[in-house]
Design a protein around this nucleic acid. Structure first.
Lengths: 144, 144
DNA sequence: TAATATTAAATTGTATAAAATTTAATATTA
DNA sequence: TAATATTAAATTTTATACAATTTAATATTA
C-alpha cells in the first residue's frame, strides 16, 4: 500500500470535510452575520454567559492569537463585552451583551437549517459526532 | 435536546480534529519544509506528475484564491514549475522539478511518523478515513 | 522580600481559506 | 464572424489559524 497516495490519507478527508461543513454553514450564518468560528464562540457563551479568553480557548482549542481579533470583532458587533478581571488583571472576561444574548433566539433555527443543507439524518450526524469525538479525545496534542 | 450546545455539535469535532491532525503533522513536515496544505499538493503531484491548477483544486477541494499563492511558494522552493499551457493559455500546468520529485524519498517516512504521533492503529486510521469519506462524498457542496 | 518563574493576552509575522472581482483566453451563438 | 458567454487564473478583501515574542500581572522561591 502506498501511504503517500491521497486516497489512503486519513487526515485529508477530515481536513476537506471540515471546510465542506463550514461552507454549508456559511449561507445560514450569513443570516445572523456570524462566521463559523464566531458562531462557535457565541455557542459557548450562550451556554456559560461569562468565560475568560483562556476558557473559551480551552473549549474550542483555539489560542489567543486567533481569539483576540475574533473577540474584538464580536465586540464591534456589540454581541459581547471584554472586561479585564479585577481579581487578576491578566485575565479578560468575555460576557454577552443583551444583543448577544438575544441573538440566541435567531440562532435557534440554525441547527435544523444546517441538517437540511447537509442532507444527513440526525442519527448519521450523531454517530459522526460521537466517532470523531472519540478520535479527537485520543489525539488532542496536550494528551501526550 | 439543546442543539445549540457545543457538545451536541457534529461539525465542531470535525473542525477541531482537522486542526489537531494538522498540528500533529507540523513537526514532521517541518523536516521537509512543507506546510500541511503544501504537502497535500506535493502528494497529488507525486501521484500525477503534472496537473493544472484546476485539477489540483478539484482533488483537494481548494480554489485558485488558495492555490495560486501556495503554488507560488512551492515554485519559490524550486519544488514545482508553473507553465502556462500552449493549447489553452487560460490553463497553468503544474509539474514537479527534479528536486520536487526527489523530495518524495524524504517524505516516505512521513505517514509512519504521523501514525506514531497520533497513537492510533492502522485499523483505526483506516476506518476513520473510510467513514469520513462516506460523509464527505455525500456532503460535497457541488453534489447538490 | 527581591529575584525569578509562570501565566494570560496581545502582538507580530507567515500561511492558509474563500467570496467577489478582474483579466485574458476560448467557446458558443445569433 | 461579431457579440456574448464561459472558463481558468490571478487578484483583492476579509477572516481565520498558529508559532513566536512581548507585555503586564501574579506566583514562587532563594
Amino acid at each position: 500500500m502506498d501511504y503517500l497516495k491521497l486516497e489512503n490519507q486519513a487526515c485529508f478527508p477530515v481536513y476537506a470535510l471540515s471546510r465542506v461543513l463550514t461552507a454549508h454553514y456559511k449561507p445560514i450564518l450569513d443570516g445572523i452575520d456570524l462566521t463559523y468560528p464566531q458562531y462557535l464562540v457565541m455557542l459557548v457563551l450562550w451556554e456559560h454567559q461569562q468565560l475568560s479568553v483562556k476558557e473559551i480557548g480551552e473549549k474550542l482549542l483555539l489560542d489567543s492569537g486567533t481569539l483576540t481579533p475574533l473577540l474584538k470583532k464580536l465586540e464591534g458587533k456589540k454581541l459581547i463585552a471584554r472586561i479585564r478581571s479585577k481579581e487578576d488583571e491578566r485575565v479578560v472576561n468575555i460576557s454577552l451583551t443583551k444583543i448577544g444574548a438575544s441573538l440566541k433566539e435567531k440562532a435557534i433555527s440554525v441547527p435544523e437549517s444546517f441538517k437540511c443543507s447537509l442532507g444527513l439524518t440526525l442519527e448519521e450526524m450523531g454517530s459522526l459526532r460521537d466517532s470523531i469525538n472519540i478520535i479527537l479525545e485520543r489525539t488532542k496534542k496536550n494528551n501526550q
